[in-house]
Structures are given as structure tokens and as C-alpha cells.
Design a protein around this nucleic acid. Structure first.
Lengths: 126, 126
DNA sequence: CAGCATCCGCAGTGATACTG
DNA sequence: CAGTATCACTGCGGATGCTG
């Protein structure tokens, strides 16, 4: 497949797809999409699932993904408030590819760790 | 597939797979792996292909990917020096999934841009 | 050509406090 | 619960200069 034939080329520095790709692959974006692939979550459920994310970063990440049309936000005007986040159809398409990547990396961590040891051994450690 | 059954869980904040995932999906890591998927490149060829990357960041990115066993570095002691970068078999596995993701995002940019417009319209722009 | 060393500004990030 | 607001800090990443 010829990438250059597409209307958007991520390799060009001013292409808007770079921004979206960064939202998707960013540290918190990737984990958030990965979590939401398993179903619907509330804000604090997500916060617990994505271990280590701060309130602010999760909020920020969700806004970016919602704006890009990957995440759907459903707020119920109850008290206490309840907000559920789910993937949109587009988000599901993206997250499926993303999850394939994440699982590939996870599954090959043994090899990666082995490569690191060999690398660090040749060059005088660190 | 049950992620919790794997020895490495990227959702846990101290899992080493998070680091590798960030090397792979980071701004420059993703584009570098994407470029190398098309074949072998020399340093400055890569620099031109990955539009906007600085010398320092490319160098740093390549080192991280090499250490993780995803990229192979072949230096020839000629003058002028010639160094070729290629994907390792492991790197090719990862980059294939990564490229599927990149192409998915690229191909759906129209939808993303549309979603943004709708989002910005409802909320008083910016 | 293929890099490493150094400096440095500022945006991204996290901790904390506060609101509806 | 579901966020927003504020602030201090770090380290990403660009610019520059130099080496083999």
C-alpha cells in the first residue's frame, strides 16, 4: 500500500494526523483506549485501571480523545453525578489495532529484556 | 484474551513493558519504526524521511530502539562512515502492528476532523 | 557523513486544593 | 463522584559547536 497516495501523510511534519496519532499513542492515551476496549468505565474506575495516571492527565486525555471522536462521554445529571466513558465505533477500530500492538509488545517483553542485557553488557553498562 | 494472565501487564505502573511501549509509540519512535518498515535507511536518510526530527532526538530514539532489540545498527568502518539501520525480526513484528494503527488513523482523519468541528461548535470554540 | 556534548527554555506533568 | 484551578518542577527537545 502506498502511503504517499493518501490525503494525509503522518510523515509530513505539518500533517494533522500526527496530532491524533499522538493522542492515541501517547502514554495515557494508549492505556486509556486500551482500558476502554474492555467496556464502559466511569471516571474513577478508569483512574484505578490506568495505574499511575493523575486526575488532571486523565481528564485531559479523555477530552482530547472525545474531541477526536474516539471516545463517547455520557453524563447523567444525577446526584452524585455519574459519567460513563465508552469507545465510539471509530474508537473501537483504532483501539483494536492499538491493542494488537500492546499485546505484541507485552508478549515479547522477554526478548526485549534479553536484548537489553546483551546491549548493556557489550557497552560498559549504562 | 485475558491480559491479566500475561507475565507482563502494561496497566500496572511499574511494568517494564510500559517503557518499551513508550519507545515504540512515542512521537519519534513510532515514525522511525514506520519509516524503517519500508526498508534499510542511513542516518540522514531517516532524518529526512521523518520530517521534523532533530539530530539529537533521532539518535536518542534509535539507541532506545536498538537497546530494546527492535532495530539493528550496522556500521561500516569506511571513510566517510556509513551506518545502516534496519528492523530486527522482532522489530518487524512490532512495526507491522504499529503501521496498521498508523494507517487506520491516517485513513480516518476525515472523520476525526469532522468530529472536532462538531465538538468545537457545541462548546464555544477553543 | 554520523554522530556526541552542552546549554537552556518552556511545555508537559504531577501534587494539592477547591467546586458542583 | 467528577471534575476544574493553580502552581512548582522536571525533563523533553531544539540549537549550537565539535569530533572521527
Amino acid at each position: 500500500m502506498d502511503l504517499d497516495a493518501l490525503p494525509f501523510d503522518v510523515f509530513a511534519k505539518d500533517c494533522p494526523s500526527r496530532g491524533t496519532l499522538e493522542h492515541v499513542t501517547g502514554r495515557w492515551g494508549a492505556l486509556t483506549l486500551g482500558a476502554l476496549h474492555e467496556g464502559s468505565f466511569r471516571f474513577n474506575e478508569l483512574r484505578r485501571r490506568v495505574d499511575g495516571v493523575s486526575e488532571k492527565m486523565l481528564s485531559q486525555t479523555l477530552h482530547a480523545l472525545e474531541r477526536d471522536g474516539l471516545v463517547h462521554r455520557e453524563a447523567q445529571p444525577t446526584n452524585p453525578p455519574r459519567v460513563d466513558y465508552t469507545l465510539t465505533p471509530l474508537g473501537r477500530e483504532v483501539s483494536e489495532r492499538l491493542l494488537a500492538l500492546i499485546q505484541c509488545v507485552q508478549g515479547r517483553m522477554e526478548d526485549v529484556l534479553g536484548a537489553r542485557e546483551r546491549y548493556d553488557e557489550v557497552r560498559g553498562a549504562r
